[in-house]
Write a protein that binds this DNA or RNA. Sequence first.
DNA 1: TATCGTGTTGCAACGGTGTTGCAATAAATT
DNA 2: AATTTATTGCAACACCGTTGCAACACGATA
Lengths: 137, 137
Amino acid sequence: MSSKVARILKSRELRATNVREKILELFIDAPKAITHRDIELAFDYIDRITLYRTLKAFEEKGLIHKIEDGSGVAKYARCIDNCDEDHHHDDHVHFHCNDCGDTFCVEEVEVPYIKSPSKHLVTKTTIVLNGTCEQCQ
Amino acid sequence: MSSKVARILKSRELRATNVREKILELFIDAPKAITHRDIELAFDYIDRITLYRTLKAFEEKGLIHKIEDGSGVAKYARCIDNCDEDHHHDDHVHFHCNDCGDTFCVEEVEVPYIKSPSKHLVTKTTIVLNGTCEQCQ
DNA sequence: TATCGTGTTGCAACGGTGTTGCAATAAATT
DNA sequence: AATTTATTGCAACACCGTTGCAACACGATA
């Protein structure tokens, strides 16, 4: 019988391999957005390239979304359940702590509609809040 | 007699060198945010490290502000005149075109106040609009 | 205008991030 | 169990960004 993570993977047309199952578990357990490096450290060893491709595959299949919080390195967090390949429900705000560097999804705060200058066509809005997180205060 | 750019540099406690004058001119003339590479290409030759340090110095002195538009590479744009060392007036929205990759300051649109989740202390808010710019439509 | 101190530049060397191509391997299907 | 196809792991590479150090130029002072 398949594990829970294996079923999730298969539902997204992703083969349930050891690497992927473990990575997906990390995402499910993580209370914050995690980096490529965080995942590498959680393994005894994992090939960097494989990890890059796994993250890309997860993102394409709507399992995770990528967050650019201005720290210079990409972070990833699990999408809430109703994300799919065509549409990511990552239209919430993200919070980045300047002290510990952690980044969190702020699901409660939706990205507001921002009136754009007429000449540009806006299709997506990204908002990152910076400051000090609960832990660091 | 000092050139205009030399005077600007000196007013920020930056020595007026050839490299800096030319770079500042590029910023003054640029209609959009420019990258490290853009500047390199504008010179016959410029040392990469010098450029990195010049950009950092300009940023610290409030001449330019750094923009992370999610494209992966840092972009820089000139601050409007009343920026200073302590406070950057870059609290406007930026627009990033997904087609040409260009990024523009949208000075007209100020970053709105976003109600933050109570547990985190928010000190800065970054907003990047994505879409198609006027040129690319 | 010659000298001097300090800021700036340019070079060497390095670490991190991310990508592509290819061969070996493992998963799902029959 | 065999086959097909996706996935993995390795090699090699390109780019971004930083630090340390020596050489140099700016701006001030005499």
